[in-house]
Amino acid sequence: MAVAKDSGPGESLAVREHEDGTVGEETHPTPAAERMLLFTDAVVAIAITLLALELPLPQGHTNSELWHSATEDRRDYQAFLISFAVVWAHWSSHRRMFRAVRRLDGVLSGINGLWLLMVVLIPFAMKVLAPDGAFQARFGFFAVIQTLAALLFGLMAWHIPRAGLAGAGAPPGIFSDALERSIAIAACFAVSVPVSLTGDWAYLCWGAAPIATRLVSRSRSRSRSRA
């Protein structure tokens, strides 16, 4: 919920109730920050769209032939679903954090560009991972992309408050929480690379990533409650 409020000449503030129930004032994003957010959203949307356009089309003149063709390409469909979910998760985290960003500098713009590079590489990395053979190399490539994406996102979360780029009404702990969650995700994917030498057990490290982020969120919630 947002309510307009006069704040003086040349500045427009709004009183906003955040998702955690706190209320604060926030300035509107500068044109440069808005353009970066629009560009980021466009790049992610294009990346997701290209995922669907590259899906193989099932072939066949009968129901049986069509189904058989689809099952032969099941790895491509699985890769699409996983890539879609991963890209969506990255974009959702970016959207949630950048709602509190009101200004832009060259450092944040550069880090955001590198983060976007990792995001658009995710569909390609998933296609590399899908085929059989050379499991460690394929798995490691995908894991490194995810590790770098998480670290770059964490770097943005670290830089924004220190450079004074957030609005006055930013939710408490939003950047420190994003930083800790990013470190947890990066650690899970980084550890999975050496674990991949033992085989498919490395996938358990990926499965641990959402558990780790949830534990981080709960720990921060408890800390705020005690405070």
Rank of each mutant, 00 (worst) to 15 (best):
R138V: 06
S217D: 10
D200F: 05
R74I: 08
L179S: 00
Y77I: 03
N63E: 07
M126F: 14
M118Q: 01
P31M: 08
W67A: 15
A32M: 01
L148I: 09
V191S: 12
E34N: 15
V216I: 08
R16E: 09
H159R: 11
A32C: 07
V120C: 04
R74E: 12
V128R: 14
E180P: 06
I82Y: 05
S221T: 13
G106I: 00
P123T: 04
R224P: 06
W201N: 02
Q78A: 06
A227G: 11
H90C: 11
D105V: 06
G21H: 13
I122D: 09
F124R: 07
S196Y: 13
V86N: 07
V23N: 01
A212L: 12
S217K: 13
A137H: 03
G110T: 10
D132C: 10
L51C: 12
T27D: 06
A52N: 07
A2Q: 09
L148S: 07
G113Q: 03
P9Y: 03
T198Q: 08
V120G: 02
L121K: 01
N63C: 02
A150M: 03
A45H: 00
W158D: 08
E72Q: 10
L114M: 11
P58G: 04
A178W: 00
V86G: 03
A170S: 13
S217I: 03
I211L: 15
Q136H: 01
W206L: 01
H90F: 12
N63F: 10
G154Q: 05
R224S: 11
S7P: 05
S64H: 14
P172C: 06
P194A: 04
H28G: 01
P29W: 15
S192I: 04
L116G: 08
A14Q: 15
T40R: 09
E180L: 15
H68E: 08
R226M: 11
A32P: 02
L129F: 15
R103F: 03
W115P: 09
D200G: 10
P161Y: 03
M1F: 05
Q146K: 04
S176H: 03
V193I: 15
H90E: 14
R74W: 12
L155V: 02
E11W: 03
W115Y: 12
A157G: 00
A170F: 06
A186M: 03
T213P: 12
S217A: 13
R224H: 09
P194S: 05
R99T: 05
G140Y: 07
R96L: 09
A85C: 13
S7A: 14
W115K: 01
D200K: 13
F153K: 03
I174R: 00
L165A: 05
E19C: 08
G8P: 00
S7I: 15
A170I: 02
W91H: 15
L121Q: 05
R16I: 12
L13K: 04
